[in-house]
Design a protein around this nucleic acid. Sequence first.
DNA 1: TTGTAAGCGTTATCAA
DNA 2: TTGATAACGCTTACAA
Lengths: 341, 341
Amino acid sequence: MPPRRSSQDKAPSQVDVARLAGVSAQTVSRVMSNQGSVRPETARRVLAAVDELGYRIHAAAASLASGRTRLLGVIIVSNDRYSIGAHGVGIEQAAAAHGYTVTTAAVAEHASSDAFIEAFDRLERQGAEGIILGIPIDLDTPAMRVRTERTPTVRSERSELDPHSPFAVDQALIGRLAVEHLLELGHRTVWHVTGDDYWMETDERRTAWQQVLTEHGITPPPVIPGNWTPESGYRAGRTIAAIPDATAVFVSSDEMAFGVLRALHEAGKRVPEDVSVVSVDGIPLSAYASPALTTVRQPFEDVGRAAALRLIAMLEGSSVGELPHIEPTLVVRASTAPPAK
Amino acid sequence: MPPRRSSQDKAPSQVDVARLAGVSAQTVSRVMSNQGSVRPETARRVLAAVDELGYRIHAAAASLASGRTRLLGVIIVSNDRYSIGAHGVGIEQAAAAHGYTVTTAAVAEHASSDAFIEAFDRLERQGAEGIILGIPIDLDTPAMRVRTERTPTVRSERSELDPHSPFAVDQALIGRLAVEHLLELGHRTVWHVTGDDYWMETDERRTAWQQVLTEHGITPPPVIPGNWTPESGYRAGRTIAAIPDATAVFVSSDEMAFGVLRALHEAGKRVPEDVSVVSVDGIPLSAYASPALTTVRQPFEDVGRAAALRLIAMLEGSSVGELPHIEPTLVVRASTAPPAK
DNA sequence: TTGTAAGCGTTATCAA
DNA sequence: TTGATAACGCTTACAA
């Protein structure tokens, strides 16, 4: 049983352990970090002392001396969208598996670029060795270039070939999967409800949608704007319901699709008989919409995991094993069907 | 314009700034921390040097010297439930407002108590001055008592009077609001779909449900078990659909309620005409269920904020201003109505 | 295999 | 108002 220290007492240090074990402080350090050779018997004595005193390494002292913090910073958007949690869990797990810890800074969705920079600086000051961006920031500005040059940075959103996000979900593929599914079902054209323009995903999916339609000789109809929220989906749904020959919609998120479904239902349009709906994300609730949503699933947790692994690899200057394969997948459920003729 | 340092170069230290400004390192320290008096003119010179060199304080060195880290640890459950993100955002905001940073450890939902302890220790080792528990852990074990004694700890879940969670959402009130709403509508009894038994909320809501029924002279029917997932709600919904005289259900989460709705619909039961449904949480999508869910909203973000503020107050040994008022509120929508007679 | 000595970049203490 | 000096608890480098 460890001796009861009141919380006033100072925590034991390596020196205390060394004294108790009858060795030098350096040997304690060696034992704690498993490097440098220590005779098993000596190690045992040290460990016993560690146990008895309840000694734990002092992270600040260790990182001051070694110059390493093993700390990863994450910048996320401060909202309650579904993906955030899963994404963070993936990061956390991968980090913990490699002995890293994670610290987070949240930034409001449409905050000024100063707010990002402030968050970035806060993480750097805290000692983050690398930073994961879960929010779109233009990295190609003088202020950000200075920072990404000194602190390795990866992004876990968007897709175009970008040295900072070589693994993110292929957003163009998402658009393609969704639109081609609808076209294969026999729809003449596909309408599109976009996400918030602030996010690059929005543009990439919109572009893919246009492109697939064009490839099929179809002139893309006007875009219907949304902002990820179910409310914006509802408004978009009312617009769609008012278009007589709209039989298929590609909605840029599941949450918006819930709103679309509601609006369509209220307008007396049946899904999928009158209108087919495909959305994006594959959140758990998407299977419980009415009707169950056909959606393109994004593996958020794997994206987080991959971002963290990638960043750690950059920091260690080596590989950390296979990165998870990040691929969107079409999940066909009840909200899509061939058009009524 | 700051001189371009390649990332190889060492970051500038107080000594570098001091040299450039023609003062002692100590004066730089004073300027950086705004304490101790410094002549305005001197401060200006120091700040100019700081700017020119791009100097930023080295957190590890500062905390080694001062003994303070201003770091808050958070233990959360590693799943993708809705509340996690909002909760974290609340914590982060409150922490940032008081100059604290946040580090997170995720633990699997039904992990062993060793896993908690491991997470707790990891946060302590990192220098967390206090810890917020977003996951149920029995604090009344020898191993946890040692830890909570040396590291201030608050919980942001459950409700009974507990020195560690004086501000969490009143779960009994949640149960009461839900059940009384149904009873006032004229229902003869109320069935209950529980959450996962691992969480104390589950028991507290179940107890409140029993109690309210009993107060009204009603013998509570058997409980229908769930585990927070929409799938478990779906199974519970099938059970309910098979009970001829069930006209009202209190479901312990919105996500489960989506499953219940689906099962009821498939069984040909109309909501709310045949069965009324009240759930808990008030997630954004709850307004877009079919029909829109009547639910008891929990202010997750405020809970996180309150937990962080409370913890900071403990650490500073003083008040940090008014804590947010944490109160569940009944949001009446379309899933509840008087029973058909 | 083990120990000694010298820093790491800051803050605390005391003196000027 | 400012400066010199000694910690803070660890790791790195080198010596024994």
